[in-house]
């Protein structure tokens, strides 16, 4: 069965089959088996994880679970406080990180003239992307929490996370700006637009789907983040009493609550939260796929 598999040739090519097509070699069969084995391990793991979480978690989900906060008196458990905290963290982080990330991408792609400065910025952006979240957590705890005196609060967490998702937004925006044809720029500038006017009215709208995809990917990272939030945003689980005051109070996101449940060995509740998280991750993934797909076809048509 080894050599008669059709090769998925990306481009039309003269030679796609070996001239020894009929011959079977033992080592070939073995390696083919190994390839299939490894691929199926990777896929089975994913299916297994999703399946296990959904089977264990869905029975835990009820209206009470989704719409109340934990109460020791009644002995009930709910995650609505954590959902609200997660929303707070996502919105504030994006409010900070999006302008910075998009601005940095515009600088790199439109204003920078190459040379050392750009190399340094690109190196640091890469570095920032490689720093693990626990280091961001420590830095946020020391700098935003202690030095700036924000303590355990949603703002501390959001500030920490905005540094973390900055490279992601910068990179996706840069890619989106690169796909805008040079003729758009020349055209706008040629009829007398100034550079900022050209960026504002031509470049950013054309690159918008790419930027939005980057923002959606950033939401995915924020929702799934835990280590960077443990020492910065704390673990509060109550509903906000005051809309803006909540920013300066501690608030645990869904992942933090999941971790705390795990630590207390309340695995049922943990699986309930895991299902909610997986549904969010799936939705975000689908949305990003859909947008980038739409974006690509638009480019092809034009």
């Amino acid at each position: 069965m080894t050599n008669d598999i059709v090769i998925p040739v990306q481009k039309e090519s003269a030679v796609t089959h070996s001239i020894y097509n009929q011959k079977n070699r033992i080592s070939d069969s073995f390696l083919t088996f190994l390839i299939y084995l490894c691929a199926s391990i990777s896929i089975m793991v994913l299916v297994g994880i999703m399946g296990y979480v959904f089977v264990r978690g869905i029975p835990e989900i009820s209206l009470e679970f989704l719409t109340t906060v934990p109460s020791t008196i009644k002995g009930t458990f709910g995650i609505v406080g954590n959902i609200v905290n997660t929303l707070y963290v996502v919105v504030i982080t994006l409010l900070i990180a999006t302008p910075l990330g998009v601005g940095a991408a515009i600088y790199l792609n439109e204003y920078a003239k190459g040379g050392k400065a750009v190399r340094i910025i690109e190196f640091t952006t890469e570095t920032l992307a490689g720093i693990p979240s626990i280091i961001f957590g420590l830095f946020g705890y020391v700098f935003f929490g202690n030095t700036l005196g924000l303590g355990y609060s949603i703002l501390t967490g959001a500030l920490t996370l905005s540094i973390m998702v900055l490279p992601l937004i910068t990179r996706t925006t840069q890619e989106a700006l690169k796909t805008v044809p040079e003729s758009y720029r020349s055209g706008a500038l040629g009829i007398g637009a100034t550079k900022w006017y050209m960026i504002r009215t031509i470049l950013l709208p054309s690159a918008m789907p790419g930027i939005v995809t980057g923002i959606i990917l950033a939401i995915g990272r924020i929702v799934g983040e835990s280590a960077a939030l443990l020492f910065t945003a704390g673990s509060g689980y109550l509903l906000p009493k005051d809309f803006f005051g909540k920013i300066f109070e501690s608030g645990g996101t869904l992942t933090i609550q999941l971790y705390l449940c795990m630590q207390k060995a309340k695995y049922g509740q943990a699986f309930g939260i895991a299902v909610v998280l997986l549904v969010i991750v799936l939705a975000i993934n689908g949305l990003a796929k859909f947008l980038s797909h739409k974006f690509n076809t638009e480019v092809k048509e034009s």
Binding site: I49, Y52, V53, G220, V223, G224, E225, S226, A227, T255, L258, Y259, M262, Y267, A270, F271, A274, L277, L278, V281, I284, N285
Partner: peptide, 10 residues
């Protein structure tokens, strides 16, 4: 994209 805490839970 799966959050790392879920890996831990499993």
């Amino acid at each position: 994209g799966i959050p790392s805490v879920i890996y831990g839970l499993l």
